[in-house]
Amino acid sequence: MIELISTQQCIACDKCILVCPTNVFDRGADGLPVISRQSDCQTCFQCEANCPADALFVAPHTHPLPEASFAHDEEHLRRTGLLGSYRRDIGWGKGRTPGAALAVGPALSPSGPPLIS
């Protein structure tokens, strides 16, 4: 689930509010997004993929994590490279090659074609 919005990195572009398929965010009084309906989050990582500022972190868990969790430790997420890692891996963002262009996986059978998705 969405667990972190970095107020330090957020540029208040409203993109996450717009793209979240299950309408989890609202715009807060200060203009930054707030997580209003976390229980509706389906852990699809789309907000993170679409955040141009790498300001969001979605934990893989489908239930909320406690306050002391790594998912709320912004410094830890930055240090380990987890913040913004999905965007990096799919090659979204300026100067990156779209991951789709490089997506040549293994074949599922000896004579089969390589998996590309």
């Binding site: 799919i90 979204w92 779209p98 789709a100 262009a101 040549v104 074609p113 998996l115 998705s117």
Partner: peptide, 22 residues
């Protein structure tokens, strides 16, 4: 211009789509 990947022999591989990109 969907960026399909190329196989080892250079042919365009079109049997799959990356969801967010598609």
């Amino acid at each position: 211009k969907y960026p399909f990947p190329a196989g080892p022999d250079g042919t365009s591989l079109r049997t799959g789509l990356q969801g967010p990109e598609y």
